[in-house]
């Protein structure tokens, strides 16, 4: 498990080493993988934008609450960005080796976290908690 993880990390910074393995897939599959990577990068960028916006637009909240929400969003952005690279490398490697594409729990985790955050914000706004 740890060996596999460190091998993936090494590939993040040297994806050209992927070419030593297997055969080159149809370029259209690689481009589809690239677009998925970019979609995750945009998810990450949306979280950064949210983190910056929270501090500006939720001025009705206490400083501590606002900052906590912003930091959680920024941390989510870091996770999404690294996950984007990791998943791209793993998919590219699986395609070169002719294996199944890797399954991932990350989308469901992100969805659950987003839903939980939305419920929390609704509760805070409706109940008027976290005010000045």
């Amino acid at each position: 498990m740890r060996d596999r993880f460190s091998a993936s990390v090494r590939l993040w910074f040297a994806p050209q080493r992927l070419r030593e393995e297997g055969t080159t897939p149809d370029y259209r599959f690689s481009l589809a993988n690239e677009r998925t990577f970019l979609a995750w990068i945009r998810t990450s960028l949306a979280l950064v934008a949210g983190g910056i916006a929270v501090d500006q637009f939720l001025t009705g909240l206490r400083w501590g609450v606002r900052t906590t929400v912003a930091i959680v969003l920024l941390a989510g952005a870091v996770l999404c960005a690294f996950r984007a690279v990791n998943h791209w490398v793993r998919c590219e490697r699986a395609m070169r080796r002719g294996e199944d594409l890797p399954a991932s729990r990350f989308p469901v985790l992100l969805a659950a976290a987003t839903a939980a955050a939305a419920v929390l914000v609704i509760a805070v706004v409706v109940l008027g908690l976290g005010g000045r």
């Binding site: 993040w12 910074f13 040297a14 994806p15 050209q16 992927l18 370029y27 690689s30 993988n33 690239e34 990577f37 990068i41 960005a81 690294f82 984007a84 690279v85 791209w88 490398v89 590219e92």
Partner: peptide
């Protein structure tokens, strides 16, 4: 050809 290290690491 697929993305190279410059694109992946640069974007990250």
């Amino acid at each position: 050809s697929p993305m190279g290290a410059v694109q992946v690491v640069g974007t990250l």
